[in-house]
């Protein structure tokens, strides 16, 4: 019994399961944005914690690969650490925190700031793959809506947003249309990252374990965020620069410094921030005192 328990196949999943998942991935790549049902396996981590992404990564990873895992843009968040450790244990692959060195990047909630290349695969962990889910809870109905390209309801939601709030107030998991056909949920990444999906050089794979769906955006594919002509899609902007590396035009985390309203903003992409600092960029917080005083 213990001997059985101790031995697992390379990257945990048995080869038959990997083949099944690879077939789903190939189908997903062939039909960009279409959610391919797959026989998601029980994984040794909880549903909702990246089982879909882990299954996709486990099915495509080889011994030569270099893996990076991020959660909220950071390599050192506990769930990212845990997933990275899992692959080190079951696949013994090289891991990295450097975006540029990775061949596979598994992510939750962010796309790295650095432009990805055609040698890289970005694997998203997806909680709810169905962009129409909160408009129509029924799977049988949403599949029909996708099949018949009935996406009017999606714009009703956006219309309503503008009517009530004066703007499209959706800030993350912002729906996109892929290759002019399927409406897709980009997973709960902030809409700031949506433009990075468009015509990306890297292959983007999406795995939803609990909901048993895999979908994909092949390299060089059109990804358009839904909007109105007179209310065009906009991404978030930050007034500040990163306090550590001075980066501008990147996604920032707000850090609470004290109980008197003190705040600072730092890069959400920790690797990007470290890389910049190594190259001598300095933010307000790290600047020598006299400069800060000026």
């Amino acid at each position: 019994m213990t001997a059985d328990l101790a031995t697992y196949n390379f990257a945990y999943l048995d080869e038959q399961t990997k083949r099944m998942i690879r077939r789903a991935i190939l189908k997903a790549i062939a039909i960009p944005g279409y959610q391919v049902p797959f026989a998601s396996r029980e994984m040794p981590m909880p549903y909702g914690w990246g089982t879909g992404g882990v299954q996709v990564t486990a099915s495509i990873i080889g011994r030569q690969d270099v893996l990076k895992v991020i959660d909220q843009g950071a390599d050192d968040t506990t769930n990212a650490v845990s997933i990275r450790a899992f692959f080190q244990k079951v696949a013994d692959v090289a891991v990295t925190t450097h975006t540029k060195d990775a061949t596979i990047i598994q992510t939750r909630h962010r796309i790295p700031e650095q432009k990805l290349t055609e040698d890289q695969v970005l694997v998203y962990q997806v909680p709810i793959p169905e962009p129409l889910r909160f408009l129509e809870p029924r799977e049988t109905e949403t599949r029909k809506m996708h099949a018949l390209e009935e996406y009017g309801l999606m714009h009703v939601k956006l219309y309503e947003d503008i009517a009530q709030n004066g703007r499209i107030s959706k800030t993350y998991a912002y729906p996109v249309k892929v290759d002019g056909r399927y409406v897709m949920d980009p997973s709960p990444t902030p809409k700031f990252d949506n433009p990075k999906m468009h015509m990306s050089d890297a292959l983007q794979l999406f795995g939803a374990g609990r909901e048993k769906r895999i979908y994909a955006v092949p390299p060089h594919t059109e990804v358009v965020s839904l909007d109105f002509e007179d209310y065009p899609f906009e991404i978030q902007t930050f007034e500040q620069d990163c306090a550590l590396c001075g980066a501008h035009g990147v996604y920032l985390d707000e850090v609470v410094l004290d109980d008197r309203g003190g705040r600072m903003f730092v890069c959400s992409d920790t690797d990007h921030c470290e890389d910049r600092r190594e190259h001598g960029h300095v933010g307000a917080m790290l600047a020598p005192n006299q400069e800060a005083a000026e």
Binding site: W49, D71, Q72, G73, T77, N79, R108, H109, R110, T171, Y172, A173, P188, T189, P190, K191, F192, Q236, Y251, L252, D253, E254, S268
Partner: peptide
């Protein structure tokens, strides 16, 4: 799990 990136956006 952390959701602070999305929360930041909200």
């Amino acid at each position: 799990l952390p959701h602070y990136v999305d929360f930041q956006a909200e």
